[in-house]
Computed example of a mutant assay.
Amino acid sequence: MEKTKKTIIVFSGDLDKAMAAFVIANGAAAMGDEVTMFFTFWGLNILRRPEKVKAKKGFLQAMFGAMMPRGAGRLGLSKMNFGGMGAKMMKIVMRQKNVAGLEELMATAREQGIKMIACTMSMDVMGITREELVDGLEYAGVATYLAEADESNVNLFI
């Protein structure tokens, strides 16, 4: 059987949408598919290190960095977030139901060899540096995503 490819653009930085992207990516990889996830704009927040990282930035880029969540553990829900309480309640229910959290889904994605690409243009616009992002990523622009998508039988935008 020929190996198929899946590509996912991760545009959203919402916890529930990030979880959906990683559940789909991990499911496809478990089925033997090659998976590429392309993180752009708000989706880059998923990949940010939780600790503050010193980086030389302009004023506006520094402001963006201060206003955005640092890492998967600090994301809010797209609906019913209630100042962060919705995400906390969701995590409690997920633990009670033995559902993997986002950090665990990300670790599984790395173990399965899912390619994660950070969009360099979005990084520049939002003032996010490579030092601020987790290890194990690739860095590229839209042309790289489009080349991957051209070879894919499924393309998702989340």
Rank of each mutant, 00 (worst) to 15 (best):
F38G: 00
F38M: 01
F38C: 02
F39A: 04
F39H: 08
F39Y: 12
F39I: 04
T40Y: 02
F41E: 10
F41G: 00
W42L: 06
W42Y: 14
N45E: 10
N45A: 06
I46R: 00
L47E: 05
R49N: 13
R49K: 15
E51L: 07
E51V: 11
V53W: 08
V53Q: 10
K54D: 15
K54F: 13
K54R: 12
K56C: 10
K56D: 14
K56Q: 14
K56P: 04
K56H: 12
K57G: 10
K57L: 15
F59C: 07
F59H: 09
F59Y: 13
F59G: 08
L60S: 11
L60R: 09
A62M: 07
A62S: 14
M63I: 13
M63P: 00
F64D: 04
F64I: 03
F64A: 03
G65L: 06
A66L: 12
A66I: 04
A66R: 09
M67H: 02
M68W: 02
M68G: 02
P69Y: 04
P69F: 03
R70L: 05
R70N: 07
G71H: 03
A72C: 07
G73Y: 06
G73E: 07
R74I: 00
R74L: 06
L75Y: 01
L75W: 02
L75C: 07
G76E: 05
G76K: 09
L77G: 04
L77Y: 07
S78K: 10
S78H: 09
K79S: 11
M80D: 15
M80Y: 15
N81D: 15
N81F: 10
F82C: 13
F82I: 09
F82N: 13
